[in-house]
Design a binder for these strands. Structure first.
Length: 256
DNA sequence: CCCTGATTCGC
DNA sequence: GCGAATCAGG
């Protein structure tokens, strides 16, 4: 699979939307979780809550260097060892950029404590999801929560009721009631419940209130359970491989 | 063990 | 540029 504009757009939206790399990889299809992460970093968008990222010390950098199978540590003649095997001072900061250029003795001016704008500007979210829920009494409390965005298998944005702008409400005569999709699909497998081990065969149609996924244990090596594998791959048989019953002439082959 | 993102490095 | 392999924390 190649990174087309469309796939990159989906990746970017989902990444900024808070989806995990695995979910993005599943949605995109054809790429691994690592591929998604690698691409995301190459795109310049990163800095997301990482479980491993909670370490930022300037102490002795542990020589975490990968030595696959080469570079036998044979200490040959020391005279030839003129190469200063020093660790390259590359304190890879995640999002900060103090840029300690060549002026260590000169006290730098007061560094502006940038909040989180960070990075090189271009990496900032192009579509900073503005909290359109301001003003809504039922949604105000969600403002401090991480925005959760879900995407359909094709990468389309699935907006929850709270995300709808409701630009011109016709005239809601009745009072608003809190959406309770959980009542119908509480036991169903939602998009966010999908992973590599549950069948992702869609049940119903996206947008319908009870749309969900099969959720059965997958047929190992396939994205669907055994039952739906039959349907999925039968449906995807190439045209040439399908053998529609040859239309026999009326009355069958002529026999004389 | 599972998950997560970060990083490295051969291709 | 890409992504598997690897690392490392939760």
């Amino acid at each position: 699979m190649s990174w087309t504009e469309e796939r990159i757009a989906t990746l970017t939206k989902m990444w900024e939307g808070g989806s995990t790399a695995s979910q993005i990889a599943d949605t995109l299809g054809g790429v691994s979780r690592n591929a998604v992460i690698g691409k995301a970093h190459r795109l310049g968008l990163k800095a997301r809550p990482s479980p491993v990222k909670a370490k930022e010390e300037k102490k002795a950098p542990p020589p975490k260097k990968k030595a696959p199978a080469a570079a036998p540590p044979v200490a040959a003649s020391p005279a030839a060892a003129d190469a200063p095997a020093e660790r390259k001072p590359a304190p890879s900061r995640p999002s900060a950029e103090p840029a300690p250029a060549a002026a260590p003795a000169r006290p730098a001016p007061i560094p502006q404590p940038e909040t989180e704008s960070a990075t090189d500007g271009e990496a900032s979210a192009p579509s900073a999801a503005a909290p359109a829920s301001a003003g809504h009494p039922l949604l105000e409390k969600r403002e401090d929560l991480p925005k959760i965005v879900s995407y359909g298998p094709g990468g389309f944005l699935r907006q929850g009721p709270g995300d709808q702008q409701a630009p011109i409400p016709p005239a809601p005569p009745r009072r608003l009631v809190p959406a309770k999709p959980s009542a119908e699909i509480a036991e169903k497998t939602s998009l966010l419940d999908l992973n590599d081990r549950v069948c992702r065969w869609p049940m119903g149609h996206p947008g319908e209130p009870d749309f969900h996924f099969c959720g059965e244990r997958v047929n190992p090596g396939f994205p669907y359970c055994v039952e739906h594998c039959g349907r999925a791959y039968q449906a995807q048989l190439p045209r040439g491989a399908r053998r529609p019953p040859p239309p026999l002439p009326f009355g069958g082959p002529r026999v004389r």
